[in-house]
Amino acid sequence: MEVRTIKVFTTVDNINLHTQVVDMSMTYGQQFGPTYLDGADVTKIKPHNSHEGKTFYVLPNDDTLRVEAFEYYHTTDPSFLGRYMSALNHTKKWKYPQVNGLTSIKWADNNCYLATALLTLQQIELKFNPPALQDAYYRARAGEAANFCALILAYCNKTVGELGDVRETMSYLFQHANLDSCKRVLNVVCKTCGQQQTTLKGVEAVMYMGTLSYEQFKKGVQIPCTCGKQATKYLVQQESPFVMMSAPPAQYELKHGTFTCASEYTGNYQCGHYKHITSKETLYCIDGALLTKSSEYKGPITDVFYKENSYTTTIK
């Protein structure tokens, strides 16, 4: 009895394709271990004539594949690729409408935090270190965002349907971005203890939790000093293409032309909904596939993004 075979390709990165001759009487799992086709788990399936010449994702289970996976995804987590594939199996079914010149995501599976993050990423200057993220990001900007969303979920250790947080998501993504040249110098002034300067680099240099107003941050924000008295913390120097200011959701007025974009969060910790506000020729609110415009805006804002380049204080 002759062994019926077909020729397929296996890959971990969709760049390096490895030619395989597979036995049609055995499952993919018996031949390769966990195997995925377009995100779908085909591990328990036997090869079919229609699979001839198709590319299958496999887990990096030998040295060659491990090197290829690390170079593309910059992670050695053995569960990463499987999590990416199972997320992709959902995100490829989502709709990605162009809204006001940006790629958004039609609401499904509690994905409003991903839509808000995706919209924000198209408006701030950011370059990702893992080629996987950078490639998928370019495709997302062009309207094909399924891979990018699935990668975000995998890097953030999230599953489809789980509630997510924009600030946490951005923080994970910033860790995989090139923020080497970003720098922030802060000064804390206390009447009792004097003053202390701190220099922050990388992710810490672009994120701040405690106030939404970048102007206020430049002037000074009140913080408790270690001595128990009130101290003032203010920005001395900022070198970065953008800054992200966050605070627990509270009524906040966004003035046209003073910011790049913002995240609105309605609801409580267990259950809520994100919308995205962007400042173009007027203010726009993007909620999944829905767009509304207004000249002014007041609502429960939790993150505001500002364009920056270089700032030095005039406070002496």
Score class of each variant (00 low, 15 high):
Phe70Tyr: 07
Val188Tyr: 10
Asn110Cys: 04
His18Ser: 09
Ile152Asp: 03
Asn309Gln: 14
Ala250Lys: 11
Lys44Ile: 13
Val21Met: 15
Asp38Phe: 13
Ala108Tyr: 05
Glu168Met: 14
Phe174His: 00
Tyr234Ala: 07
Thr314Arg: 09
Gly82Leu: 10
Met245Arg: 02
Gly210Phe: 05
Glu281Met: 00
Ile286His: 04
Asn157Gln: 14
Phe70Pro: 06
Ile124Ala: 02
Asn157Gly: 09
Leu121Arg: 03
Cys112Glu: 02
Asp38Gly: 12
Gln31Tyr: 13
Gly202Pro: 01
Tyr311Pro: 06
Ser171Ile: 15
Thr55Ile: 08
Thr91Val: 12
Ile301Lys: 00
Glu52Met: 12
Asn178Ala: 14
Ile286Arg: 00
Leu119Trp: 01
Met170Pro: 03
Tyr252Val: 10
Ser171Pro: 00
Met85Pro: 05
Arg66Glu: 14
Glu71Asp: 10
Ile301Gln: 01
Ala250Asp: 09
Gly53Met: 15
Val166Thr: 06
Phe242Gly: 00
Asn61Trp: 14
Ile277Val: 09
Asn129Arg: 10
Ser213Glu: 07
Gly29Trp: 10
Arg141Leu: 13
Cys225Thr: 01
Thr43Trp: 06
Pro300Trp: 10
Thr169Ile: 13
Leu126Thr: 04
Cys225Asn: 02
Ile301Arg: 00
Thr169Met: 10
Asn268Tyr: 07
Cys112Leu: 03
Ser25Ile: 07
Ser240Cys: 01
Lys7Asp: 12
Gly194Phe: 04
Lys7Val: 08
Thr11Gln: 05
Trp94Gln: 04
Lys183Tyr: 08
Thr19Ile: 14
Glu204Gly: 13
Thr199Ala: 08
Ile286Cys: 01
Arg83Phe: 06
Lys280Phe: 12
Tyr269Ser: 13
Asp23Lys: 10
Tyr96Arg: 04
Leu17Gln: 15
Pro34Gln: 14
Lys316Arg: 13
Tyr96Asp: 01
Val203Asn: 07
Met244Asn: 01
Leu179Arg: 03
Arg141Asp: 05
Lys255His: 11
Arg139Ala: 13
Tyr155Gln: 01
Ala132Pro: 05
Tyr234Gly: 01
Leu81Asp: 02
Ala154Asn: 02
Tyr172His: 08
Glu253Cys: 09
Asn111Lys: 03
Phe9Glu: 10
Tyr214Glu: 03
Thr232Gln: 08
Ser310Gln: 09
Ser104Gln: 05
Tyr284Pro: 01
Gly143Glu: 03
Asn49Arg: 12
Ser246His: 03
Thr266Glu: 15
Glu68His: 11
Cys193Phe: 01
Gln222Leu: 10
Met207Gln: 09
Cys261Asn: 00
Ala40Glu: 09
Cys190Gln: 04
Ser171Trp: 15
Cys227Glu: 02
Thr64Met: 13
Tyr214Cys: 04
Leu118Gly: 05
Asn129Ala: 09
Ala132Cys: 09
Leu163His: 07
Asp23Arg: 14
Leu179Val: 05
Asn157Met: 08
Ala150Gln: 02
Gln195Tyr: 11
Glu296Arg: 12
Thr260Lys: 04
Lys233Arg: 11
Cys193Glu: 03
Asn110Ala: 02
Ser310Leu: 12
Gly299Asn: 00
Ser79Gly: 14
Thr91Asn: 04
Leu88Gln: 05
Val8Trp: 04
Val221Arg: 05
Ser50Asp: 11
Lys298Arg: 10
Gln30Gly: 07
Tyr36Glu: 03
Met209Trp: 09
Phe9Val: 09
Tyr311Cys: 09
Lys191Gln: 15
Glu52Pro: 10
Glu71Tyr: 10
Val185Cys: 06
Ser295Leu: 15
Lys127Pro: 09
Pro60Gly: 10
Leu126Pro: 08
Thr27Asp: 14
Lys280Leu: 11
Lys95Gln: 15
Ala115Trp: 03
His273Val: 00
Glu162Ala: 08
Thr313Gly: 14
Val206Trp: 01
Ala154Leu: 02
Thr192Tyr: 10
Val189Tyr: 09
Gly143Gln: 06
Asp165Arg: 03
Phe242Ile: 01
Tyr269Val: 09
Ser213Leu: 02
Asn309Tyr: 07
Thr278Trp: 05
Thr76Cys: 13
Trp107Asn: 06
Tyr265Asn: 02
Lys92Glu: 08
Tyr214Phe: 09
Pro97Glu: 14
Thr278Lys: 00
Leu290His: 14
Gln230Gly: 09
Val12Ser: 11
Lys307Glu: 11
Gln123Pro: 03
Asn268Met: 08
Asn61Glu: 15
Thr75Trp: 04
Glu264Asp: 06
His276Ile: 02
Leu151Tyr: 05
Gly143Pro: 03
His90Leu: 14
His256Ala: 14
Leu118Val: 08
Tyr234Thr: 10
Asn110Arg: 02
His74Cys: 08
Val58Ala: 07
Ser171Thr: 15
Glu308Met: 13
Ile124Cys: 05
Val166Ser: 05
Leu17Ser: 09
Tyr36Thr: 06
Ala117Lys: 04
Gln122Ala: 03
Leu291Gln: 11
Leu179Trp: 06
Gly39Ala: 15
Thr313Asp: 15
Val3Gly: 14
Phe80Cys: 03
Asp180His: 15
Leu186Pro: 01
Lys229Phe: 12
Phe32Ile: 10
Pro224Gly: 10
Met170His: 03
Leu102Cys: 05
Gly210Lys: 03
Leu291His: 11
Tyr234Ser: 08
Pro248Tyr: 10
Thr258Ser: 12
Tyr306Asn: 00
